[in-house]
Simulated scan of single mutants.
Amino acid sequence: MRISLKPLHEQVIVITGASSGIGLATARLAIEKGARVVLVARNEAALFEIERELNAGNRVLHVMADVGERAQLERVASETISRFGGFDTWINNAGSSVWGRFDEVSDEDHHQVMQTNFWGTHYGSSIAVKHLRDKGGALINIGSVESANALPLHSSYSASKHAIKAMTEVLRVELQKSRTPVSVTLVRPSSTDTQFMDHSKNYLPSAPVFPPPVYAPEVVAHAILHAAEHPQRDVYIGNAKLLSRLAQNAPRLADWVNRTFVYDSLKSGRPDRHPRGALHDSDVGRAGDGSASGNYPGRTLARSLYTRASQHPVATTAAVAVSAAALVALLGRRGR
């Protein structure tokens, strides 16, 4: 069954976790492309400022909601339908995290990560599919390189992303079997420079840091919005596919890499400015919001060649062919 999606300028797009990071970068780009956008997050003050910053008139609606509460996401859908008549793409991006040894992190904190990440995506997917079942559209869930390659000191986050991957794959097959015209995509970013670390609760002796290479959030935003127009099963950012294949095909080697190189590299040695993060509602806003980019101290990459090649295969093939032809012509001239 062929699924046809609207161009972005004709779409209404719901984005959870839109007050910072990948969600905010995606919202900005969607507005730039002419879409109408619904911003969802727990920090209403930040959402209000972002809506004012976007300056897109009646093309933006913000709704404060905790994605871990189904009733609150039902209200997001209801207010979106009331304002815009419906939506065409729903992006489950909201996420939370805690860093620390499995046995040192409290059950409450492990539970909160699963509630936000897995159940928030579960609720959002259920609500989105119910609305899109007859009219068609796109459901985009944000997974991670950790959907396949679990990071040490990040057990509940990795577990939540594994669970999101499994749920997304089951839902996709069931919708395909019933010939439901909804595209279901799992986006798998690798390390991304957002406020993720500031928002994470931290049990480690120093601030956590992602292993390089690290990508700008706009790289992920472009990939997400491409999937909102062009149905795609999986979208890997940067080295996410390589690391996923390593974990799947050589798990003992992946364990050795994580144990030998990754484990200690996750500890920056720098003081953590926000060790409580924004895991629980009482801490929302304390670690900052309103910025797409974070404070990664190293170099961030503004493009992922692999992602671009996988999403634009024809253009990539043409570019390679032109480059090869130019190289052949150049070598031919030198050989004369």
Rank of each mutant, 00 (worst) to 15 (best):
L61N: 05
E44A: 10
S265C: 03
V37P: 06
Q311V: 05
V37K: 14
I31Q: 05
V145I: 15
D107V: 01
L327A: 15
R101A: 13
G238N: 05
A94F: 09
E174M: 09
S156H: 06
V40A: 09
S147N: 03
T116N: 11
G95C: 00
K267M: 08
P275K: 00
N55S: 10
T26M: 15
G269D: 05
R42S: 12
D289W: 00
P297A: 08
V219Y: 09
S125M: 12
V67S: 12
V187Q: 10
S144T: 04
P7C: 06
D289C: 01
G137F: 11
Q112K: 09
V113H: 02
A18G: 10
I164Y: 03
A35T: 02
L5W: 13
A166D: 08
V76A: 11
G86Y: 13
G288S: 09
P251T: 07
V284A: 10
D255W: 15
A94N: 07
P181K: 15
Q195E: 04
A315P: 04
I31L: 15
T185V: 06
A318E: 10
H199N: 08
L204S: 14
Y236N: 14
V37S: 13
V60A: 01
A216K: 13
S106M: 06
R59G: 01
A326K: 11
I224S: 10
A207F: 00
E69L: 15
L5A: 05
G277V: 05
A27R: 08
G23N: 10
G285Y: 08
A128R: 02
S82A: 13
L225Y: 13
A315E: 13
A292H: 09
L8G: 03
N141S: 06
N117Q: 06
L171N: 00
I81S: 12
S155V: 07
R52D: 10
P152W: 04
A309R: 10
V63Y: 11
V60T: 14
N202Q: 11
A326N: 09
R299N: 07
M1T: 13
S190E: 11
L47A: 04
L327S: 12
S158E: 14
L175Q: 05
T317N: 04
I81E: 15
F87V: 10
R2L: 06
L54T: 01
R28L: 09
I50M: 08
P181N: 14
H162R: 12
S125T: 15
A216W: 00
L175H: 01
E174C: 03
Q232H: 15
A247Y: 00
H230S: 14
L246N: 06
A292F: 03
W99R: 11
S200Y: 11
K135P: 03
V129I: 15
V145Y: 06
